[in-house]
Structures are given as C-alpha cells and as structure tokens.
Design a protein around this nucleic acid. Structure first.
Lengths: 194, 194
DNA sequence: TACTGGGTAGAGCGTTCGTTCTAGCCTGTG
DNA sequence: CACAGGCTAGAACGAACGCTCTACCCAGTA
C-alpha cells in the first residue's frame, strides 16, 4: 500500500510540473495545466499534494534538483580533468538547450527568481538544490587536489556561470554563450592548478 | 486618492512595473498591482499602453535595460583597468542586492525566463538588453587593447557570470557568490593580457 | 462662454485561477 | 460475496486576472 502503483500518477504529476515550471515559471504554470499535461485529474493532484500548488512546486524543484545533480555527477566522473569535464558539461547543456528549441534551460531558475522572499517553502528547496550542485563540483575539485577554499570558491563560480550562461544562451538562442563560458571556466580552473 | 507630485504618470507606471517584475516576474505581476504601486488608475495604464500588459512589460524591460546599462558604463569608466572595474561592479551589485533584502536582483532575468518562446515582444526587448550590456563590456575591453574576438567572448562570459552570480547570491542570501565571481572574472580577464 | 481633448476614475465584462467538495471507480483483502 | 480505502473524476466556489467601457475632470483655446 505504501508502494506507488502502475506507472505512478504522482511521478507523472511531478515530472509534468517540473517541465512546465522550467519553461514558464511557477506563476505562469497552473495546477490544471499540470494535471492535464500529466494526464491526471485535479482530484489526483490534490490527493497526492494536499499542500496545493506550493507543495507541487516544492516536489518539482526537488525532482529537478536530483535530475541535474545526476547529470552533473555523470559529466564530472567521465573526465579525469575537472576543467575539461566542466567544459564538456557546458557543451552538453548547450546541445540539450538547442535540441529543445531554446526552451529547456535551467529547470529551477525561473521558479527561483519568482519566489525569492515570497514563498519560503520553495525558496528553501531551491537553496538546497544550489548547495547540492555546488557541493558536487566542490567535491570533484577537492578530489583533484585543489585547496579546500579554492575548491569551494571555484565551485560557486562554476554553478553561477553555468546558470548565467544558460540564461544568456536561451536569450540569444545560441550555443555560443554556454560553450564559451565552459572554455573560460576551464581556463580559470587551470589557473589554480599546482 | 492624493495627487502625486512631479514625475509623469507614464513614468511612474513604467518604474513600478519594472520594480514589480524584477521581484515577482512578469506572470506574477498584475496590471492592477502595477497601477496601485504607481499611484495611477487602470484607466491611465491603458491610456498610455493600449497594447495592454505586454506593452507595459516591454516598456519595463527597456527601462531596466537602460538603467543597468548606465550603471555598467559608470562602473567601467571609473577604473582604467577593466578587470578591476568588473570586480568593483560585482561588489556594487552585491551591496545593492544586500541592501534590498536580497530581493532586487537582475531586473529582467525573471521576466526573460518566463517569456522565452512565448511572448515574442518581450523576448525581443530582453534580447536587445543583453546585447546592449554585452556590447558595453566588449567596447571597454577593446578600448583596453584586447583582441576583437577575445573582447567579444570575454564580454559574453562577463554578462553571463554576473547574471548567474546575482541569481546565486539571491538564492543563498549572501554577497559571496557575487564578490567571488567578480574576482574570478578579473583573474580570467588578466589571463588574456599580453 | 462654450468647446475640445488628454488624462483620470472605477464599475463591470468574461475568463481563469487555486481550491474544495461529493460521488464513483477499482482492486485487494476477509 | 461484501466491503474498505486508495485513487480518480469533475462540478462548483470565491477571488483575481486582463481588459473594455462610459463618465468625469480640467486646462487651453477662441
């Protein structure tokens, strides 16, 4: 009974919410639209998320958090050199963004910007996601022999820059901002080596 | 209610729209809220902006575009060394963000993310703003003797990174991401010198 | 004096929002 | 077979949305 049945209605709702919020933000996405996209009914949504739209939003952010963390971990473990790994990661994001028709950028930044200081529950989920991602990068850098404080600062800038470059690429509808940012990050990281 | 002094009604509307959209995005901001904040009436808003909410949004983005361009130009012309100037600019953004209670980040990024691929008029205004800002940085770098292509790529990354760092700083409610990003950008720029 | 027109004021339109509610379906157990 | 309970289905609510509409105020002009 505690197990979710079939291809999981709850999962479909979270996935649809995450996708829609990625593309049109939190405010721009309606509960009914989420239900429709998930091929669920309003009743189901409120059954699984008695907390309403906020609760769906939090779950969607957490889902996107884990999804991007997995992508980041995979990209970083494929390459021994962290500088090259991050540049490759930026290129991968650029490809994905292009293939989506310049629509699928960072899955939570739109939601983050709309809700800062106004919806604490979502704010907190976003905060945790950013910490999560930064820590993944920081751990990789530490593992590659970077000094503790350098690793932390570099990881912060890596996340910031990827985030910003994704936005810029989306605005310009061009892969260039992301690929260039990746190369610049690699150059920056290499300048700390040794 | 009480009649407002000097500044024209149209200007008050644009200013209020810009501020509200900065804090809660395009979708999260209502026309009536804009009118109220501007101490104007709905009739006045539709008198000055027959195009409705989209038209107000475009004007707000253009206003924010010019405002940030002025801030950028001022910061860049205060320092001869562009690397130091950009680091100083990042610190200034951090101060402003902190003083606003971590609420006033980039004035258009929330709107940009919500409207990409969905509201062409606003999309275009955002595109022009990013180009505008990038060109200001690129011109400064070119003026400081950087190669044409280096200046262009660096300018793109500077805007991306500032944008992303502002978001990260907002999420973490900390000045650090912005100040660190500023220092990293300075280091990156200096690595292209000579 | 009367006219003119930019600007102000706000009631109210149709729609959609988030949410609540009741009723019914379906499946696993006793 | 009966029956409980997780889940689905969708009608309906008040509030808020973007927007339209008419009426009014009040210089400036003649």
């Amino acid at each position: 009974m505690a197990k979710s049945p079939q291809p999981g209605t709850r999962e479909r709702i979270v996935h649809a919410a995450s996708l829609l919020m990625q593309r049109q933000g939190y405010e721009g996405t309606g509960i009914k639209q989420i239900a429709q996209e998930a091929e669920a009914t309003l009743g189901s949504v409120y059954h699984f998320f008695p907390g309403g739209k906020q609760a769906v939003g939090v779950a969607a952010v957490q889902h996107a958090d884990q999804e991007f963390a997995d992508l980041l971990s995979a990209a970083l473990s494929e390459e021994a050199d962290p500088a090259k790994a991050i540049a490759a990661c930026a290129r991968a994001l650029a490809c994905h963004l292009r293939d989506s028709g310049w629509v699928d950028g960072c899955p939570i930044s739109a939601t983050a910007l709309e809700t800062t200081g106004r919806v604490p529950a979502i704010e907190q989920a976003v905060n945790r996601a950013f910490q999560h991602w930064r820590d993944i990068v920081a751990d990789t850098l530490r593992g590659a022999g970077f000094r503790e404080s350098d690793a932390h600062d570099l990881a912060t800038t890596v996340i910031s820059t990827l985030e910003g470059a994704e936005l810029t690429a989306q605005v310009f509808k061009s892969e260039t901002p992301l690929t260039v940012a990746g190369e610049h990050l690699a150059r920056l990281i290499n300048s700390y080596k040794g």
